[in-house]
Design a binder for these strands. Structure first.
Lengths: 350, 350
DNA sequence: CTGAAAGCGCTTACAG
DNA sequence: CTGAAAGCGCTTACAG
């Protein structure tokens, strides 16, 4: 397990990094010639190219992107920012990876950061990214007011919204079809005979949570099912709160026979609550957003799946299109969801 | 769902970003005075501070970190790189978030990138990060040779390894105790009476995979259990391969009665294979590394849990200590694992 | 094809 | 307390 090298003192000598000037001196050419070789301009004499490359390699020269960006006319930093709610949430992580893949292909690096659903951190983090002069921003916003970003757009920094739309700002946006997906979930439950379908939802300030609730309620209306406020629980922020909400509903005189959960963690909370009550084969359940191992639970959990990889690909391609100078109006892309039947959603009304 | 603003043409005007010079001109002071105010040097006249801040705010001035770093004597970019195998793997994601949290507190941003277990991408990505002049690097290496990083260390860039140790390089390192954790897992299975305990492992080139196998084998030796090569499957790279390996073992004349899996995805594969064979309540299972919902499966999956959050905290604190100039020898921190009994590992030999 | 001078947006080192 | 000059590591714009 242990390498002999470890435990020995680290070298105290720090040799400063070589600059282009050092390379020029060693190769016996001018600064500008080194610059040409490093940037692969074709107009340089082959012999000089060789001399410069040898010197660069001997000094282990690494060009300074930042210094180069500062002087270049495009002033591009080759960095983009990806700001998400929580990188450790699988939905966010998949979007991040998807964008990272495109960025890498385009020669860009990604500055990533998480809001943890704290709206006040949003402008602060965006500010930090702007001070680092990122060339573009992909953001799943935590706040409800984005006018402050207009000045960044006008400074030429494209901004693409994912998962949630911009408020008071014209910007490209890629989202799942929350409304249609929720409607499909509720109709699927109704098709199994259920008439008392409960709803569990995230913070109502979040636009997607509003949309999912609207899909739920409009489906009930369309199907002429009763809308019982006792079966609707919104603003659930923790797994514990969601579990308690389900337990309370199950204890009602007229309990729900089916549940639609508007989010990942709420779905898992519902599974736990149904298990605790011993009702998991009895009360139907459909969740919005898929999660790992949903198929291995018993019963398997039926979900309306989002496609975070696709959302990321579209967002990244919009961003890089803007970076290439495309000017058109702000685009709004809606990515459809997919019902995945696994058992819990197919439990019929007994 | 739709904001009226969307669909309208974006503003075509791009007003360039204000510089410190612009702020100085508007405030009627010198460049240097603006610099003093922006950097909160206390020696500035209160009235001037006000004038400068008003001008900065009117122009929506955002200082340019890169330009400032270029000239400052410390030449710090306030960026660190976090290079992991795959940010969408929960283990990596937790480490990332943990480091991000410390970095943010220290006023640093994080450049994140994933290797996807491709060793050749490692030096390439590190090179990119160096060209961006990150101040430090946290890396879960994909390669088996890190001498190339010595020049970066000597240029003053601290490098901290996580999850896997450096090879041919002296550097700080934070890892789980793979050997002890694996040994504990196997002994736990043996304590339930099992004598034919199988092993499933990741690529043998990965040091942690080697350590976990060593822990497994040494436990067998210590307990005087037979070492049957037919019960050892290494170099498993996909869930499918792992499922097939388990299926093949179960079909042996002398099948295993218990399984130890050396990694996350292999554990899930084993669960699937046991389910398919209808043996999940029959063959015991302990996995290395915990995963979400392991407790909700039936039987619950017993694991040797790592503590990625803690690994990240330690790695980040080592890194920032080095950035503050601490010189001591390279440190190797071992984070202990924790056996979590949930059912699958407590199935006794029948 | 090659190079000397100027300058990107800032901070340093120095005067006043 | 305030500012004019020089320079960080590069590229631009121009000469030769």
């Amino acid at each position: 397990m242990s390498t002999e090298l470890n435990g020995m003192p680290s070298p105290l000598t720090t040799s400063p990094r070589a600059t282009m000037k050092d390379v020029a001196a060693l190769a016996g050419v001018s600064l500008k010639t080194v610059s040409r070789v490093i940037n692969e301009e074709s107009t340089v004499n082959a012999e000089m190219v060789e001399r410069v490359l040898a010197a660069a390699s001997e000094l282990r020269y690494q060009p300074n992107f930042g210094a180069s960006a500062l002087r270049r006319s495009d002033r591009r930093s080759s960095q983009i920012a990806v700001l998400l709610e929580d990188l450790s949430n699988p939905f966010s992580a998949a979007i991040y990876r998807s964008i990272e893949e495109v960025a890498m292909r385009e020669g860009f690096t990604v500055l990533g950061a998480s809001f943890d659903e704290d709206p006040s951190r949003e402008p602060a983090l965006v500010g930090t990214m702007i001070r680092h002069r990122v060339d573009g921003i992909v953001i799943a916003p935590a706040s409800q007011e984005h006018a402050y970003l207009e000045v960044e757009q006008q400074a030429g920094t494209p901004i693409v919204f994912v998962d949630r739309p911009p408020v008071n700002l014209r910007a490209d946006c890629v989202m799942s079809d929350s409304y249609a997906g929720s409607m499909e979930a509720v109709k699927h439950l109704a098709a199994q005979g259920h008439r008392r379908i409960a709803y569990l939802g995230d913070l109502s300030t979040i636009v997607t949570a509003q949309e999912r609730f609207r899909g739920y309620r409009d489906a009930l209306k369309e199907l002429s099912l009763e809308q019982d406020p006792a079966l609707m629980s919104k603003n659930l922020r923790t797994v514990e709160a969601a579990e308690a909400a389900v337990a309370a509903m199950l204890a009602l005189d007229a309990p729900p026979t089916a549940i639609f959960t508007g989010q990942n963690l709420l779905t898992i909370a519902a599974v736990r609550a149904l298990r605790t009550a011993g009702r998991e084969y009895d009360v139907a359940l459909v969740g919005f957003d898929d999660f790992l191992l949903a198929d291995l639970l018993r019963p398997g959990v039926t979900v309306v799946a989002q496609d975070p990889w696709r959302i990321g690909q579209i967002a990244a391609s919009l961003l890089f299109r803007r970076l290439r100078g495309e000017q058109g109006p702000a685009e709004r892309m809606i990515v459809s969801t997919e019902l995945r039947e696994r058992g819990s959603g197919e439990i019929a009304l007994s």
